[in-house]
Design a protein around this nucleic acid. Structure first.
Length: 270
DNA sequence: GTCCAGGGTAAGC
DNA sequence: GCTTACCATGGA
């Protein structure tokens, strides 16, 4: 089906380090696997795209995944106008969207992310999917269920280059598979309650919890601080986190700054 | 070969 | 409460 997606830079979003199974095929085709489903997107022009799914699948999965109900233009307009670095970041990251990922996959992906770069994280997520996930097409595998990982072992998980994270992932999977923790119920919690609940998983600290809140539960105030954002805070905010003054969409603005400081366009002049 | 990566944990203070 | 050593692995 054909679809207009306003404010969507597909390359920028796919490489923004928020999701790890959004892959470039060629100049106009991108492949996504999410919620046990594969999607191919073809770029038609600036904001028009061709999705190889039907209306039902779009409404059930991809409408929310692409965060279609959010008005990004008004969020950018509401950003503090006198913040020179932020405004520069926003100019260079037009079209960046925050995807609404599945909590379980997002949780495991960001437990993996600690002390790894983005290509390495992608490799681990892909290896996990191939090893434990259900086949969903031609050489395509869904992200494994909590039950599939809970039924595995440290030794099997170690074949996915997870290092010391294998133990965290196995324990977390057992907590979810046993219903000791219900990730769907987490959606009803307030921001502080959700953060506290996420911090109970082994391998989840403040930063990973913030990533899951922002990228899976649409808590746009969550402001993940990784090594790159800490550099931004040191260089441009005098060591003080701007999270509070950036307001209810601080997390979205954070993602723009993250992408900008990592880009070749960043000149370190502000 | 060296440095770094979307950090977390536990021990020590 | 705040430091610090340590944790496995692969990419650059």
């Amino acid at each position: 089906m054909e679809l207009t997606i306003p404010n969507f830079d597909i390359a920028l979003t796919a490489n923004s380090g928020q999701c790890f199974r959004f892959q470039k095929i060629d100049e106009i085709h991108y492949s996504i696997i999410a919620r046990q489903t594969h999607l191919m997107i073809q770029t038609l022009d600036n904001d028009r795209f061709l999705l190889d799914c039907d209306e039902k699948s779009y409404q059930e999965i991809w409408h929310d995944y692409f965060d279609m109900d959010r008005d990004y233009l008004s969020i950018m307009k509401a950003a503090p106008p006198d913040d020179a670095f932020l405004q520069e970041a926003l100019r260079h990251t037009k079209g960046l969207r925050i995807l609404q990922q599945e909590p379980w996959e997002c949780l495991i992906s960001f437990i993996i992310s600690q002390r790894k770069n983005i290509p390495a994280i992608k490799g681990c997520v892909e290896a996990l999917s191939r090893r434990f996930g259900e086949p969903i097409g031609d050489d395509l595998f869904a992200f494994p269920t909590p039950e599939a990982i809970a039924a595995s072992s440290i030794e099997e998980l170690n074949t996915c280059s997870l290092g010391y994270r294998s133990n965290y992932i196995l324990k977390t999977a057992r907590m979810v598979a046993s219903r000791q923790a219900d990730l769907d119920d987490f959606g009803r919690l307030s921001d502080p309650e959700l953060k506290e609940a996420l911090l109970r998983f082994p391998g989840v600290g403040i930063k990973v919890a913030d990533c899951v809140m922002l990228f899976a539960y649409a808590r746009t105030k969550a402001f993940p601080r990784d090594v790159w954002i800490n550099r931004v805070i040191d260089k441009h905010y005098d060591g003080q986190s701007p999270a509070e003054y950036l307001g209810p969409h601080a997390g979205i603005l954070q993602q723009c700054m993250f992408c900008y400081i990592r880009s070749s366009q960043y000149k370190n002049t502000y």
